[in-house]
Write a protein that binds this DNA or RNA. Structure first.
Lengths: 198, 198
DNA sequence: AACTCCATGTAACATGTTACATGATTCG
DNA sequence: CGAATCATGTAACATGTTACATGGAGTT
């Protein structure tokens, strides 16, 4: 049930509508959890039913009404309790890794292309994280920020996100180099056994 | 449908029973995909139905019979096709990150403890990966291995796994240091707003 | 006129988790 | 004698994905 707690944690940063949350949890932006809009709308219903969030309907002039959610006292208790509960280590589930694992029986050019795309994606995410970091630090050094700021959680997960993307980039770069070496090596690429399908 | 292709990719390393596969895909070992035994048994049924694997029932003397699976020609075609298909960037979903994000409203000691446990877990995985790497290299240098070995996919994902765990360890270490600085800072920990639940 | 943004949802499906059940064998 | 390992599964549930639907406002 970690989606539930991820939503509560996100609401610590301030109240939000489902739509606003769906942007914070967008896969291309999220640094501590990601979820689709549909998951969020469903979960927000449940959180409301469980009394873990407060809801206010905000009527808007030239826009559809929105329901603005904030964390309730019961929600804060629930979130506190969550931090004391065990969590399992995360599962590796990345299609790109499967492609790389299957490289020898797959289309090496296609995998190389996919690696390049992932590299660009990581670069984009990193740039966003860096902008966010600059905004958080607001001119202060990290040491200053760490001492002075009220909250530290968001900064720490942001750092995690940055390091993760940098790490991805290093891995992809290393893989691409190795693939370049191998494609330039005497031995040609072995034709794929099926010989072309249909 | 990446589980399907992960299983096919795993079978490139040789035939296996469901039970054997479940060990390769164990969350504490897997370096390119993880899955529970139940998922694997279900998926192997489907792969069999779709003709993507060959199945041989091996009768054993003092053991229950086992069904040994290997990738079929159709399976190789399917896997090849998969390497040309787009995959989405992976979703961040780690309960530990949620805890860290919620640190300021949570139990800092419990989160610190969880970070320590994750650090140990990462260390263990790294050690396993290192042993696997030594076995793969079999005394050769990486450069030699890259030039000479038939397959490269498994080595590359292994490298990915190693780098990922090292990266996790660096992040956790940095977080623990920052938390140590903050807990030693003038300002005491703010009591949690709910004040104790129930 | 077409497209994107705001704002919400439903329905159907695919995937992943947890608990349980069975039964022999080997290890300490 | 109890625990771990080998080997397979079923059932129920929780979570996540995809496609679609609605409708006004602003933008090109």
């Amino acid at each position: 049930m970690a989606l539930r707690h991820a939503v509560l944690a996100a609401l610590l940063e301030g109240e939000a509508s489902g739509y606003e949350l769906s942007k914070r949890f967008d896969i291309g932006v999220a640094n501590f959890w990601s979820a689709t809009p549909q998951q969020l709308y469903r979960e927000l219903e449940r959180l409301d039913d469980a009394g873990l969030v407060n809801v206010v309907v905000v009527e808007q002039r030239r826009r559809p009404n929105k329901r603005v959610f904030s964390i309730s006292d019961a929600g804060l208790d629930e979130l506190y309790a969550f931090t004391t509960q065990p969590t399992r280590p995360p599962a590796m589930r990345d299609g790109l890794l499967v492609k790389v694992q299957a490289l020898d029986a797959g289309d090496a050019d296609a995998v190389t292309k996919a690696l390049g795309e992932r590299l660009a994606h990581a670069q984009g995410k990193l740039a966003r994280y860096d902008r966010l970091r600059d905004r958080l630090l607001a001119g202060r050094s990290e040491a200053e920020y760490v001492r002075a700021s009220e909250r530290i959680g968001p900064y720490l997960t942001l750092m995690g996100g940055r390091m993760f993307e940098q790490q991805s980039m290093r891995w992809i770069t290393a893989v691409l180099e190795i693939l370049a070496v191998r494609s330039g090596r005497g031995q040609a690429v072995t034709a794929h056994p099926g010989g072309g399908r249909t």
